[in-house]
Design a protein around this nucleic acid. Structure first.
Length: 423
RNA sequence: GGAGAGCUGGCAGAGUGGUCGAAUGCGGCAGUCUUGAAAACUGUUGACUGUCAUAGGUCCGGGGGUUCGAAUCCCUCGCUCUCCGCCA
């Protein structure tokens, strides 16, 4: 959520930046500013009445103590109207505030100045490409065929047990999952991310604070009986550790990594692009989260980007880095890098990581603050990045590394898998 | 699932319907002492809103009510803890 003060003081800039994100309802900005003026006006009226009520109540107390009962009664009779007035004003205030709040949450985060202008994924800027795209043998096949060929992931069985999009990993497939999770967690620990293990269901307050609610309600599984949500990413529980927390400046940078299963309903997406492991309802991911001093957030973003690249390099996967354009960015991000791996048999780039700086957009809802040098409260910046999501990594490993001897496991993973080939 | 207790500032923990944003202790910060540190002593120490700055307003789990006045009384919802039951 954007900060009201900022909108008030930077109206033109806000409108200009929202334009870069292709935000259509620009009129909201002026409506918000207007509502805010109204809000403050009513608030100060109500405050004035309360002040009078307080002082006369105090006076009555004073008189009662002195035993001047009649004088007290006299003031009492004058004081009975305050409550009605205050109630009237606070009701009015509540309506304005509700309206204001409903509108301000509709504004997406403002894009950073480096965000390219554009409307769709085609307008994303390719920042760099790394590695060589492998030339596969004539008989090379897509990963969904390899899953069956080697019996490592059984999609049909998942359908039986749960439904489409809930795969069953078997044998070396299951082992590979565990190897990747451990590899990612160990690498994260090496560069100073403290591992946490968090609940994979969250309450409504948490889902709201990181911005999944109200905008993305339909994308989460909702356990209605207990009113809990299955997490779509570890970002939600991990970032919410710091909800309503005033951190010490010297705690920065706060860095956490966490492995969790992730659940996404992803309603209404079908077709070749979602075959096999390309898109699932349940998948595994190691997530990195940072909470940093505002001055450091872009340095932290670059560092996260470089870190995720280092993982892909170690896995010997060809990848490219995209800087998302305004139109393709998420609602909450100020700047996002997507990392895509080339999946040689499908002949397409698969998004395996998304690294974002949210600046104060999340922290304003989360209320993660610190006391700055001048002793004033200030919102921290939050960032997160997948490091990494497993299914598409597995898909591209399978496709890119298919050989006559089987699927070749990258060297870094062999200590984790205990085997060199899936055969 | 059954029964009971409770929810107050960073933590612990007082609080009679008016002088309570709230005692006290711990912690934090600053200072004295010390070569330095510790100890001791002294002072200081909540958040939000609002204002150019003051002032003012709000907050004792959430919401509502009684009252001139509520942390304190009433209703309601939520949560936590303890005991029993069940259970990995």
């Amino acid at each position: 959520m954007l900060q009201l003060n900022y909108i008030r003081e930077n109206r033109d800039k806000v409108i200009e930046r929202l334009g870069v994100k292709n935000f259509k309802e620009i009129g909201l900005v002026d409506e918000i500013i207007h509502l805010d003026e109204q809000r403050r006006k009513i608030q100060s009226e109500s405050d004035a009445v309360s002040a009078e009520a307080n002082s006369s109540a105090k006076k009555i107390g004073e008189l009662m103590r002195q035993g001047k009962k009649e004088e007290a009664e006299a003031i009492k009779s004058q004081s009975s109207g305050y409550k009605e007035q205050v109630k009237h004003l606070t009701d009015e205030l509540a309506i304005v505030e509700q309206d204001l709040n409903a509108k301000i949450v509709q504004l997406p985060n403002l894009p950073h100045t480096s965000v390219p202008v554009g409307v769709s994924a085609d307008d994303n800027e390719v920042v760099l490409e790394h590695g060589t795209i492998p030339t596969l043998a004539e008989d090379a096949v897509s990963h969904w065929d390899l899953l069956t060929k080697y019996g490592i992931v059984d999609l049909e069985l998942g359908v039986k047990v749960t439904g489409a999009g809930f795969p069953v990993y078997k044998g070396k497939g299951a082992r590979l999952q565990r190897a990747l999770i451990n590899f990612f967690l160990d690498e994260a620990a090496k560069v100073g991310y403290e591992e946490v293990q968090v609940p994979i269901m969250v309450n409504e307050a948490s889902a709201f604070a990181t911005g999944q609610l109200p905008d993305k309600e339909g994308q989460m599984y909702h356990v209605t009986h207990d009113d809990l949500y299955l997490i779509p990413t570890a970002e939600v529980p991990v970032t919410n550790i710091y909800r309503d927390v005033i951190v010490k400046e010297e705690q920065f940078p706060i860095r956490h990594c966490a492995y969790t299963p992730c659940f996404r309903r992803e309603a209404g997406s079908y077709g070749a692009h979602v075959r096999g492991l390309n898109r699932l309802h349940q998948f595994d991911k190691v997530e990195t989260v940072q909470i940093v001093h505002p001055d450091q957030s872009y340095a932290a973003l670059e560092e996260m980007n470089t870190y995720v690249q280092s993982l892909l390099q170690k896995l010997e996967l060809p990848y490219r880095v995209l800087r998302l354009c305004g139109g393709d960015m998420s609602f909450t991000a100020a700047l996002t890098y997507d990392l895509e791996v080339y999946s040689a048999a499908q002949k397409r780039w698969l998004e395996v990581s998304s690294v974002s700086n949210f600046e104060t957009y999340q922290s304003n809802r989360l209320k993660v603050r610190f006391k700055n040098q001048e002793g004033k409260m200030q919102l921290a910046h939050t960032l997160n990045g997948s490091a990494l999501a497993l299914p598409r990594i597995v898909a591209s490993l399978l496709e890119n590394n298919q050989t006559e001897k089987g699927i070749r496991i990258p060297n870094v993973l062999i200590p984790y898998t205990g085997f060199e080939y899936i055969d």
